[in-house]
Amino acid sequence: MKDTMQVTSRSGQKPLVQVRGLSFARGERMIFDGIDLDIERGKITAIMGPSGTGKTTLLKLIGGQLRPAAGTIVVDGKNVHELTTRELYRLRQRIGMMFQTGALLTDLDVYANVAFPIREHADLPESLVRDLVLMKLQAVGLRGAAGLMPSELSGGMARRVAMARAIALDPMMVLYDEPFTGQDPISMGIVVKLISELNDALGLTSIVVSHDVQETAAIADYAYLLSNGKVVDQGTPEMLWKSASEWSQQFLNGMPDGPVAFHYPAPNFRDDLMQGGRLR
């Protein structure tokens, strides 16, 4: 067991995000049941787990869009859920988030989408906004697509635009929600490269939520595996590959049967068949 009381983290530096004893329920269903996470400054931390483990929910909790049932989330020394709305909004300006589908504003073109957070929060002259936007678009390689509408973009391009928008305000941290899902290998490769490059070039802290093991493991400095509301395993990717946990091995290698059974819980198959016509 990990010592939950530790204040300084693995590298000896105070982590940017500290999650302690976090519980969250949606209706009857427990999504998180007392999880602890540390997100190191300047590193890429991966949160992995099967679909439906609430990885996206975790990002929304960190961003203060949802309230936990119990536990605390401290971002850069501030308890997210004790902030006033104004303070929370100020914190959010320092956090970029890339949604699974990009979540670009459909009535604005690519340029205006990237300019959106800048125009909303900074009262800059239009020429400066233009320079900033073109810089961000250049970073994701889409400066030439500035005039396109979101509907004209491929899925991969939409995500790159969303990335440019996420870094528009030069945040301290960027949250990526399933950045690799449903992409062709080339755009996947581009996104992988971009996450890693942006993190180093801009001195960001990144949280990548994903179930694409290969891609995530390739860029993550540290990874948490979540299942059934608990942290099942954690460590650097190298440590995880060698992990003794059966569950981790099944998840990382994509094995159809294991601790997560192939069969949905059911009564004995033989008994079920023998009941014959007497069912109902």
Partner: peptide, 22 residues
């Protein structure tokens, strides 16, 4: 409704823009 379904409203909130106002 579509803005909600495509997470645009949520995205705005995360960009510290209140969709109620905007």
């Amino acid at each position: 409704g579509l803005m909600k379904a495509t997470e645009q409203l949520s995205g705005m909130e995360m960009m510290a823009v209140d969709p109620m106002r905007r």
